[in-house]
Design a protein around this nucleic acid. Structure first.
Lengths: 333, 333
DNA sequence: CTGAAAGCGCTTACAG
DNA sequence: CTGAAAGCGCTTACAG
C-alpha cells in the first residue's frame, strides 16, 4: 500500500483520447453506440492510463449498482456451498459483484445485514432459506429490488422463490423406507426450519401409512460428522432399536456409519442409514449413502435467469420455481 | 419487488428534523459532534422516514468505502472456510461490507476480480493463498489500499501477510513421523502451491535425515473424501508398501482410513495416516486423525487488527505475522 | 455519432 | 454545535 497519486478518472481518459467524458462512458457501457475509430482511441487511452471506472460513482449516477447481496446462514461445511459457488461465479462472469452476508443459524443478524445491502442499493438480494419474520418479508416486498429466496418454497414468496418442498421430501422418504420394508425409523433432525419441516412431514406420512410415531433426536446446525457418532451411541437408550436412522445431513449419516462400524455393527444389515443433500461423499462412502439430491447448480441457474430477465426489464413467468428433489437409493438403506 | 417511490434521502430526513443535511451526515458518522437534542430529532426523523443512507454516494464523497474484498480459491469444502467465516462476521460487526470473489483453483479469474474490487474502491483486499504473478503483486503494491495475504507467508508481502511457513510444516511432519519410527512414508499432495511446498519440504527433510525419497501421488484441488479412497487403492501398485500415508487434507485422510478399514486393514497398525487442517472431523473420526492445526480464527483476528489500525491511520508493527501451526498427534499415526 | 450540462446523494473543509 | 457550498466521478436525457 502506497499513498500514491489519485487514480485516473474518466475525464483523464477523455482528455487523452480527445473526446468528452460522455463518450468514454458510452464506450464503457454501450460500446456499440461509439464509432470504431473513436473506440480505438479510447481503448488506447484506457490502457495507457490504467483507468478503472469508479463504480461507486457509476452506481450513484445510474441507479444500477450491479451489486448483488447473497445471504447464507454459514459457510463452514454447508450444503448450500455448491449453489453459492455456482452463483457467485456466474454473477461475476456477467459483470456483477457479490456481497456476502452471514446471517448465523438463528437469523439474528438478518435485519442489520439487510439494511446494509439496501444501503448499498444492491440490484438483488438472494436469500438462502426462509425469512420467517413477516414484518421483514413485507418490508422487502416494498423495495424495488429483486429478492430471490432459495431452497425453500413458501406459498407467498417475497418476490421470487426457487427451491423445493421440504415437506414433500420428508414424506417421500417415509414412503421410500416403508416400501423397502423398514419398520422402526429414528430421526436425527437439525434445528433448522427446513430440516424440521422434513422431519415433521416424515413422521406424519409414516403414521398415515400405519407406522408408530418415530423417535427422534435434535441436533444443532451446522451439522457435522461428530453428531453422527453421538447419535449412534444414543440409539442404545431408545426403548426399541431402530432399523433405520434418517439423518438430516450426509455428514451426520457418515459419522453414524463410522461409529456403527467401529462397534462391529453392519450397515445396512444391522441398521440402515439415510442422509440428506447428496454431497459427493455420499457416493464415495463405504457403504455408499442413500440420500436426497437437490440440484444446487440448477437453483443457481434459475436464480441467474431471473436476474437476467429483471435486468432486461422482462417480466417473469413464475414466481415459484420448483427444482424438485430425488431420493438416491444406495447401499446404506 | 414493487416499483415504489424513490427511497428517502438525507435531505428528506434533514427537512423533517429541521436541520441541514450536513448535520444529519454528522449524526450518522460522528454522533458525538451533534447536540443531544438535535440528535433526538434526527433519530426520530430517520425512524419515521425509514431512511437508509446511500452508501454509494457516501463512498464517493468520502473516498472511504468500508468495503472489503475477500478472495478465496473456492468455498465448497475448504479449509479456509472457518477463517472466512470469522472474518466476514467480524467485519460486518464493525460496519463493513464484504465482497466475495472466487478465484478458482488456478487463479484464472484473479485479474478481472481484482479489477472489480479496485473499481469499487474497496478499502482492503484480503487474499487467501499466494498471488504468484509478480506483475500483479507489483500492481497491487502501487494501489493505496490495504492488501492482506493469508495462509502463506511470502518473504516480500505485497503489503501485509498473515500465515505460517508451509515449508516448516512439511519438514516438521517429516521429523515427527521419523521420530515415531515410521520409515516408508507416501505423500498424497494436492495440486496447490501451498500443499506442494509442504510436500517438497517433507521430502527434503526426510532425506536429510537419512530416509529414501518418499513416493507420492498428486491430486486435484479442492480435495475430497473420495480421493482418499482412490489413494488407498493406489498403494497396492507401489514398489514397497508404505507404513504411513501423509495426506494433504483431513478429507483425504478420512477417505483413506475408511477404504483401508473396508479392506480389513488396520489404522495405524497396518498403515498409519496423517491429515492436514485439523478440521473438526479429524478429532471425531475413528480412529482420530493426526493432523496439522492452523488457527484459522487467529488469522482472522490478526487480519481485523491490521484493518483497524489502518483505518485509524496507525502504522503497523509487522508486515509478516506468523500464526504458526501445531502437529496434533492422535490415533491414526 | 458526440458534447455540454445537469444531476445522482452524500461528505467535508470552512465560516460562523 | 451548525449551515451553505463545493465537490466526489460518474451517467443520461437532450440537442445537434
Amino acid at each position: 500500500m502506497e499513498d500514491g497519486i489519485p487514480p485516473p478518472k474518466i475525464s483523464d481518459v477523455a482528455a487523452l483520447a480527445g473526446v468528452s467524458p460522455a463518450t468514454v462512458s458510452r464506450f464503457l457501457n454501450r460500446p456499440a453506440t461509439v464509432a470504431r475509430l473513436t473506440s480505438e482511441r479510447i481503448r488506447a487511452a484506457i490502457a495507457e492510463t490504467g483507468y478503472l471506472p469508479n463504480l461507486n460513482a457509476g452506481a450513484l449516477a445510474s441507479k444500477r449498482s450491479r451489486l448483488i447481496a447473497a445471504f447464507v446462514p454459514e459457510i463452514a461445511q454447508s450444503v448450500f456451498n455448491d449453489t453459492m459457488e455456482a452463483m457467485i461465479d456466474g454473477l461475476a462472469n456477467e459483470g456483477n459483484s457479490v456481497m456476502l452476508a452471514l446471517t448465523g443459524p438463528d437469523n439474528r443478524r438478518l435485519e442489520s445485514q439487510i439494511n446494509a445491502a439496501l444501503s448499498w442499493r444492491v440490484d438483488a438480494i438472494i436469500l438462502t432459506g426462509i425469512v420467517t419474520d413477516e414484518a421483514m418479508r413485507d418490508r422487502l416486498r416494498r423495495h424495488p429490488i429483486t429478492v430471490i429466496e432459495t431452497w425453500g418454497l413458501p406459498e407467498e414468496p417475497i418476490d421470487v422463490a426457487i427451491g423445493f418442498s421440504h415437506a414433500r421430501a420428508g414424506a417421500e422418504m417415509a414412503r421410500f423406507l416403508r416400501q423397502r420394508g423398514y419398520r422402526r425409523p429414528h430421526l436425527v433432525v437439525p434445528r433448522s426450519t427446513r430440516s424440521q419441516r422434513r422431519g415433521r412431514a416424515f413422521a406424519e406420512q409414516w403414521m398415515m401409512d400405519g407406522g408408530a410415531e418415530p423417535s427422534s433426536l435434535e441436533v444443532e446446525v451446522p451439522t457435522h460428522f461428530g453428531q453422527g457418532r453421538l447419535a449412534y451411541r444414543g440409539l442404545a437408550d431408545l426403548p426399541h432399536r431402530p432399523d433405520v436412522v434418517v439423518c438430516g445431513s450426509d455428514w451426520i449419516a457418515q459419522g453414524l456409519i463410522v461409529e456403527a462400524q467401529a462397534a462391529g455393527v453392519k450397515v445396512p444389515d444391522d441398521v440402515a442409514v439415510t442422509g440428506f443433500g447428496n454431497l459427493r461423499l455420499a457416493g464415495d462412502m463405504r457403504p455408499t449413502i442413500t440420500s436426497v439430491d437437490v440440484d444446487g447448480s440448477r437453483v443457481a441457474e434459475e436464480a441467474m435467469k431471473v436476474l437476467r430477465k429483471r435486468m432486461a426489464g422482462e417480466s417473469l413467468e413464475a414466481r415459484r420455481i420448483d427444482v424438485g428433489f430425488r431420493i438416491i437409493a444406495r447401499e446404506s438403506a
